[in-house]
Structures are given as structure tokens and as C-alpha cells.
């Protein structure tokens, strides 16, 4: 299979590491060659963070470049827009509509651009937006936002839900498995 590219983007501290761990686990179990790349350290302190997930028969580069991503899963609204250059023509953006102000907005040196999702749609991007934070709260924890988004992503793949659930069991601590499975289903059914 030709290599597929998924980017997970958001704000440091939002839980993108668990999402990429889950995806990596699932895709290895499915028998793909997989590479996952992320940057640790300073950018995790509330900065813009990005994780690359690549899978297929043979993967060389661990990073995804401009015009290469099949999917961008964004944990925050403008982060989706920040990385949309990486999207392939006809690619899909799955985006949590949550707004987290970056420091230049907080201190008033610029404004938060509200209409980025509409602009992306108008440029031919498939935008699949959802309020993952509220959905995660419904599942029992605002922190499960990442798994709600994974549920949404799962809809675009042929991998059965049971396998995603198995991967969740392997990736999260036992007492959080139920909440995360619920969050996954809410995202999937949304």
C-alpha cells in the first residue's frame, strides 16, 4: 500500500502524544510499516505542536511535508489552519472547534482569526469540524478530547472499531479505558 500521512496538531499539553501512541499501536497491529515523529521539550510548554504519523508498505522519512498529508487532525481551531499547507489536494481536516488564544492574542497584539474553517472550505479542503471538548465532557472527561477526535478519524478508515478499542486498551491505564472507549464511540458516531 502507498504511504498514508496523518498529522496531529494542537497546543502543547492537549494530549496529542496519546493520540499518536494509539494510532501507532493500531497500525503496527494491522501489519503496516509505521513511523511516528514528534518533538519533545520546549515547544510542549503551550506552544504549537505537531506529530507526524506515516504508514504503508515501506516508510522512509519520519516527517510529513507540504502537500503530503491525507489527514490533519487538529485539537484546536487555528492550529488546523497553521498546518493546512501540509495537506494534500483533496485531503481532509478533522478539527476540534475549541479556541485557545495564543500569547500574541492574549496580550492584544493581534486578533484571533475566527473564520479560518470557512476559508479552508472555500479553498476546497474537506473540513470535518466538531466540538470535541463538549463531546469529551459528555464521555466523562474533558481530557478525552484526543480520543473523541480519534473516533472521528476512525470513520475514514476500513479498520473495524473493535481493533481501535483493543488499541485503546493497550495504550491507556486500566481505570481510564472505559471513559476513552466511550469518548471514541461518541466521536465515531458524531
Amino acid at each position: 500500500m502507498a504511504v498514508k500521512n496523518i498529522m496531529i496538531v494542537g497546543v502543547g499539553g492537549q494530549g496529542s502524544l496519546l493520540a499518536s501512541k494509539l494510532l501507532g499501536r493500531l497500525l503496527v497491529d494491522e501489519g503496516f510499516d509505521v513511523k511516528v515523529s514528534e518533538v519533545h521539550g520546549m515547544s510542549q510548554r503551550g506552544g504549537s505542536v505537531v506529530t507526524y504519523v506515516r504508514f504503508g508498505d515501506k516508510v522512509y522519512s519520519p516527517v510529513i511535508e507540504e502537500g503530503e498529508a491525507d489527514f490533519i487532525v487538529s485539537f484546536e481551531k487555528i492550529e488546523a489552519a497553521r498546518y493546512v499547507r501540509h495537506l494534500k489536494k483533496g485531503g481532509t481536516v478533522i478539527v476540534n472547534t475549541q479556541q485557545i488564544d495564543p500569547m500574541p492574542v492574549i496580550i492584544g497584539s493581534t486578533v484571533y482569526p475566527d473564520a479560518v474553517l470557512e476559508e479552508m472550505s472555500s479553498k476546497g479542503v474537506q473540513v470535518d469540524a466538531l466540538d470535541a471538548l463538549s463531546l469529551a465532557t459528555q464521555a466523562g472527561s474533558a481530557k478525552a478530547c484526543n480520543i473523541v477526535l480519534m473516533g472521528k478519524l476512525a470513520k475514514y478508515f476500513d479498520i473495524p472499531c473493535e481493533k481501535w478499542e483493543k488499541a485503546i486498551e493497550k495504550c491507556v491505564k486500566p481505570n481510564f479505558v472505559e471513559i476513552n472507549k466511550k469518548a471514541f464511540k461518541i466521536g465515531y458516531d458524531h
Binding site: 497546543v11 510548554r45 503551550g46 487555528i78 495537506l87 500574541p104 493581534t110 479560518v116 479552508m120
Partner: peptide, 20 residues
């Protein structure tokens, strides 16, 4: 050949790391 990309007109504010 460069790959085709999506370019937005909106300027996205930078999001530097910061103290928690």
C-alpha cells in the same frame, strides 16, 4: 516539481511556547 498545497489568505498568529 513542488507538491500542490493549500494557502490561506488569513495570517495565523504565532503560538510560541510559554510558561504554564
Amino acid at each position: 516539481e513542488e507538491k500542490e498545497t493549500v494557502v490561506l489568505d488569513t495570517n495565523i498568529p504565532v503560538r510560541p511556547p510559554m510558561m504554564c
